[in-house]
Structures are given as C-alpha cells and as structure tokens.
Design a protein around this nucleic acid. Sequence first.
DNA 1: AGATCTATTTTTGTTAACCATATTAGTTAG
DNA 2: CTAACTAATATGGTTAACAAAAATAGATCT
Lengths: 232, 232
Amino acid sequence: MSDDAHGSPAALREAGTPRSRRPLHAEAAGWLRDMIIEGELLPGERIPEQALCDRLGISRTPLREALKMLAAEGLVLLQPNRGATVANPSAEEVDQTFHVIGAMEALAGELACHRVSASDVAEIRVLHYQMVLHRTRQELPEYFKLNQQIHERIVEASGNTVLVETYRRLVGRIRRHRYIANLTTQRWDQAIREHEEMLEALEARDGARLAATLRRHLDNKRTAARAATTAD
Amino acid sequence: MSDDAHGSPAALREAGTPRSRRPLHAEAAGWLRDMIIEGELLPGERIPEQALCDRLGISRTPLREALKMLAAEGLVLLQPNRGATVANPSAEEVDQTFHVIGAMEALAGELACHRVSASDVAEIRVLHYQMVLHRTRQELPEYFKLNQQIHERIVEASGNTVLVETYRRLVGRIRRHRYIANLTTQRWDQAIREHEEMLEALEARDGARLAATLRRHLDNKRTAARAATTAD
DNA sequence: AGATCTATTTTTGTTAACCATATTAGTTAG
DNA sequence: CTAACTAATATGGTTAACAAAAATAGATCT
C-alpha cells in the first residue's frame, strides 16, 4: 500500500499499452480495491461481471480471478449463482474487527519498542506534528490520512511481516468506519491526546504502556464508530 | 472446518455426479486445502495446472480461481509466469506467525471468559481429558488433533467471528510446524501442564490469567517448533 | 389493484479452443 | 565444460459457447 504504482486507473487504459509485467488479475484486484476504498463502489452494491469487464477493458477470466482474491480478503462477498457484492459488514462485525485490530496493534506496539530505531521514531513524530496541524485547520481528510499512516508505521515497526499483512487486510475492511469515528470534536481531541501518549510510550520504549494505550485508543475508536453509525 | 462435508475426495469424482450446488472453484479450493494439509502436496512443491485439472477432473478456469483464493489465504505462492507453489514459509515467517496467533488466542481468551457458558467449558474439559489420555498412550496424531480442537474451541468461545476467521487462516499456514512442536517428551509434558492451567483460568473466568497463559503457551510452542525445525 | 404463475431475458459457472509470451529443457557450438 | 541457441512446455489471457440458475417482465387469476 505504500508504493502506489497503481498503473492506469481503469478508464485510461488504451489499446497500445505494453501490458504491464504484473498479471492482469493482480492489477484488476488493485483497481477494484481502490474503487471500493474510494467509495466508487458502495457497500452492498452488486458487481456485475460484464459491466465491469467493459469498464476496465479486460475479459471475464482475470476479473473473476480478481474477485476471488478480494473475496478471500473479505472485501467482496461471493454468493453462488448470485455474483459478487461489495462487502457490507454489520455493526457487529465492524465491532469485532476493531477488537482484533486492537489486539494486533497492541502486539505491534510491544514488538516495535524492542527494535524501532531512533530515526523511525523521529519520522513518526513528524507525522504526528503534521497530523496535529491538520487538526487545528479542521482538515479531516488530511488528518485521517496521517492518522492512518502513523498506525501503519507503528505496525510496520514491529518487523513482523505476517502481522503487517494481517493488519492491512483487516483495516481495509473498515476504512470507512475508521474515517467517521472522529467526526465529533470531543472525539477528535481525545484521539490527539491518545496519539500523544502513544508517541511518549514509543519514545520511552515502554512496550507495555504503548500496547495498553493502543488498545484503549482502538477501543475508543470502536465505540465512536459504533455511535456514529448507529446514529445515522 | 467443523463440518467436513468435503464432497468427493478428488480421485472419486465420476462423470455422472450431479454437480454439487457449491461452485467448482470453492470445491477445488477445499480439495487443494486438504491436499496441502494432509501433506499430499509438500511445501515448496510446484502445482502444475494441467496435471491437477486432470486429477481433479475440472477445467483450468475454476482451478485457477481456486489457486487465487488459496494465494490470498497465504497457503499458496503465486509467481508471475512461474505458476503456483505450495507456500513454504521461512523459519522467520513461522516465528512471526506464532507471535500473531499468540496475540489472537490471548484476545480470544479474554473475550471467552466474559461469555463462555458452563456447558462449553465442560465440553472443553472433556476434550482435555481425552487429550491427556492420548498423551499417556503416546498417540501423537490423536493428541495433536484434540490439542488443536481445544485451542479452536477457546477461540470460537470468544464469539468474535472475525477473530475466528483470521485465526483459522493463520493456523492453516503452520499446521505442520505446530505438529512437530511437541515431539520431545519434556515439551509434551509442559504443554499438558500449560493446558491444565488454561482450563483452570477458563473455569475461573479469569480473563487476564487465561490470556497470559495462552500467550506463554504459544510462545513455548513457537520456541519448540523453532528448535525442532532448525535441528533437522 | 394485488398476488401468483409462467415465459423470457440476463447473469453466472464452466468448458474448450486458441494465441502470445515467458520459462525450462535440450542441443549444439565454441 | 560452458555458453548460446532452439525446441518444448506452461502460464496468462481472450473469446466463444452453453447449461443452469436467477432476475425480470408479462400474463393470468382472485
């Protein structure tokens, strides 16, 4: 997710393009992932094969392979003889996902404290300051992006690739819900405070404290997300 | 994994079979999963498409779709233009997987203590006694199966389906390594003691203790697995 | 009108044939 | 023996076709 060499964004594909060395199904999976995350395909929406094939300029085979991959990732729901729909997790499922993510970030925090370099910490600190700046300017999208990056950096700092992979998979499923979790001002400020505590713990290499803080942070985020969604 | 309506086991597929209502690619994925777990396909081994198609009696399309799913699950490695191979995780990766599984079982333990019923606990206790029996009889395969079931039951008792799903995915990747983790007598006895402590904590509904015990248990299993594999 | 049954159309699941390209094996030349 | 070249093979991808299931529209009945 860090290197966004996403290739041609669907519509821009031309005939003469020297088909990239990456297989089409992988590329298609990437396009679909983006379309789902960007909200171009909404949760619960049906994904008609032929229409998507025309749109992406590919045939059914690689598209169906891509759908199978996304289904295994949990981003797409595949029902026999009824095609694919964008996954639409219930409030309960979102809640459960937050719990698991919390446990994974906690583990990541502990591991990170053992092996994170000073420069890594410094970089995360910079991201934090940028994030705070966007908060004072009330720039939610930019804030959200940096928020996400900070969490991802910490998980990456764990040095556990399996953890990183599993984390990304789950985060991708509830991106939308994480976004709307910080909509109220109180929650927003609280999130900032929690992030500051996370940074402190990381700089002190206090694994236990960082893990506890992350867990609490995620728990609050979960509650906020639940409140925001059930309120609608 | 609990309901094993696996259908026809590969070789037994006949022409006149009234094709099951489940799509072929799902079925094929199940067959391949079994073949990998049972050791019929060994780690690192290549998976030639055509040969497998003949063997399973299906065409390339559904098989390739199945391979994409297994790749997304991490059981199969897909290299562009070089086909599929059974995933062959490095010692490092196995280690990392154990860590993540440990964190997930710990979370499961905490959640389970809040909501597990007396009858669930009783059932797990029964499994435990059966397992001990197999240990005294030195029946490793049966012991292993029950061991696994106990862990899975605890995770299921968490009531968190996302956790269960993620757990199963990861466990599937290192089944083999978990098996060889209890090969020495000392480790075997230690594992039994740890299981007894787990049961005690669960019966007392002591979430923190159960989580800690599970984490320690998994950590020991990880170390044992590492020792067993590097010794070869 | 509203509900039910039926026929038509659409979509999905699957097979088969085909081609381009990348990989692997085999062979020959140096 | 190694290196370069060639042949055989396997993969990635497209298209056509078809059965079966589902969605839709249409007709019928109450």
